[in-house]
Amino acid sequence: MSDVASPPTRADATARAVYGARPRRPYSRDTVETRLFRVLRWVVIAALLLVTLFPFYYMVLLSVRSLDELLRDPGALLVSPGEWDLSTYSEVLRPASDGGQGFLRFMANSAMVALGTVFLTLLIALPGAYAVSRLRFFGHRQISGLFLAVYLFPSILLAVPLFVFFSRVGLRGELVGLLLVYVSQIVAVAIYMLRNYFDTIPVSLEEAAAIDGCSRLGVMWRISLPLAMPAIMANALFVFMIAWNEFLFALLFLVEDRESWTVSLGLSQLSGSIEVPTTVLMAGSVIITLPIIIVFLATERLLVGGLTAGAEKG
């Protein structure tokens, strides 16, 4: 530490000797740095906001412009409400048979898969997380490590055999196959998040219920589940977001049948073709991003707490 501190200290040596420990000169390194960072901080915040939000602004902007206008004046970043063209939204939502892009159908598929994943994951992960947190059984310490390993494995490594397997049993192209894959991928993280929350619930509450004659299942159902509700909600929304956003497995399993495309797959397939106008697809992007942003803003605090619960210990 001393070598970095030395240049200014040497210069201030006399000042220090006279005035005490802290130099009071107007341009000491400390004041310069403090002032610099006070300004720099706002510059950084503004830049970060611009960088993170601009793409989303651009998405909304392009979704309400017509293609002709976009090509005529690509640099325009403000469009007055009078010039808004909302026909893009109705075109992207209408079914393909009706001259639209069928996003309503994709959204229904995605919602089905995502909600199914949420339901199944919770059904499996809740007892699992409870067991890992509360019960001592053979290997309960090793299980978290095993799940972590699963989570870190390349999903492309799973893609090949699952593709082969589902092709052979005829589940490729079915939403059910996709559902199974999602659950298996997410359940480890879900258990990790839920277990952290179960750990914070005092055991004494459960013991009190047990002494009053509650069975183990009764304790789980009447005491632990209601207490863990905030974590369960956060977890459900987290799982929903992952399943709604997923792309690789949807691409591998569902690409052949347009009727079963999810929103992610639909947008990526249509954006590869030249026939669909960019502005219409921007409307599609807004539509598939909106549910995620709503879910995220509604639960930001819960999610952030749940995700980073283990971070403080480093």
């Binding site: 993170t52 793409p55 954006s271 991003t289 995220f296």
Partner: peptide, 22 residues
Amino acid sequence: VRAAMLLPYVAPVVAVTFVWRT
């Protein structure tokens, strides 16, 4: 501002890549 910082991470990857490409 904090919530805004997290948007790129939570938004669907297909939508944000499409916006970047555009």
